Simulated scan of single mutants.
Amino acid sequence: MSLDFEIFKPQGRLASHIQAIWSVSVASDTVQTVHKQLLSDAGTGVTFILQNEVQMDGEWQSPGVLLLPVSTLAHQVCLPPGTVMAGVRFHPAVSYQLFGQRLAQPLRIEGDHPLASLALATFESLQAAHSPSARMVALYHWCQDLIAAYEPQDVSHIIHQERATISQRQRERQFQKWLGITPKHYQRIIRVRQTLEQLRAQPNISLSDLALEQGFADQAHMTRECQQIARMTPKQFVRKRKKPNRL
């Protein structure tokens, strides 16, 4: 198999801040570039590009550590043969709690960036690791150090409407500060993601039934939302999933 992708979802204390720790590599003898579609989740992440340049939304990125902006639209990543990457995916608003800023585009972590001392040492250890499991163990320890150093707040009671303990106006202000979107926009992103995740698990499900289950007005409404946020319709999503080199 040309693509090796592994993911770990932390439990315990890290679970309230970290969605996942992941590792991906493409065999050097692979003939074609691997294309990966990343669904938007309103979260952010830190990506360690360990070997080879990779293309992210049309921009080539050289090896290093990238802090990613809030994901409001689907992203396309192109992984040439020999690529090795690893990273951490934060829950929505966690990145702002950690670093006190909301990015408009990927930021390379270097120099005097507050994260540099922790991240660059981890980058070196990841480059020296010889397996996906070793990379994820190194990232797990880095996450522990990161959370201990910055002590981010648990803001899930604000992000998730059913748990909200503040007024709607206060919630909207926090969303704008942390994510740059409204709570309603956030719910649209999550609904599209859940819709396509269900379609990933059940590719033969009736689209009209899927639209009803996910709370869309009808199938046409679901198609429009997926096209706008995921940059593809449900039918296109299923077709892309059947192609080789797709995750």
Rank of each mutant, 00 (worst) to 15 (best):
S2Y: 09
L3V: 15
D4Y: 11
I7D: 14
G12V: 11
G12F: 11
R13F: 10
L14M: 11
H17R: 07
S23N: 15
V24M: 07
S25D: 05
T33H: 01
T33S: 03
V34P: 04
H35Y: 09
H35Q: 11
Q37M: 12
S40I: 07
S40P: 15
A42N: 02
A42Q: 05
V46A: 02
T47R: 03
L50D: 08
E53M: 01
Q55I: 05
Q55A: 00
D57I: 02
G58V: 10
W60N: 15
L68S: 09
V70M: 02
V70D: 03
A74R: 07
A74P: 00
Q76K: 04
V77G: 03
L79E: 08
P81F: 11
P81A: 08
P81Y: 14
T83N: 01
V84C: 07
A86V: 05
V88R: 00
F90W: 14
H91S: 09
H91E: 13
H91K: 12
A93H: 04
S95L: 00
F99Q: 03
G100R: 06
R108S: 05
D112A: 09
L115Q: 06
A116R: 06
L118F: 00
A121C: 05
E124F: 08
A134M: 11
A138Q: 10
L139Y: 12
C143P: 04
H157K: 05
H157C: 06
I158W: 10
I158N: 03
H160Y: 13
Q161L: 04
R163D: 06
T165G: 03
I166F: 13
I166E: 07
S167M: 07
Q170Y: 03
R171D: 05
R173S: 09
R173Q: 14
L179H: 02
G180L: 13
T182Q: 03
K184M: 10
Q187R: 12
V192H: 00
V192A: 07
Q194K: 05
L196R: 08
L196P: 02
E197M: 14
Q202Y: 09
P203G: 08
S208I: 15
S208T: 14
D209I: 09
L210A: 08
L210V: 11
Q214M: 15
A217F: 01
A220Y: 15
E225D: 14
Q227P: 08
I229W: 10
I229C: 03
M232Y: 00
P234S: 03
F237A: 11
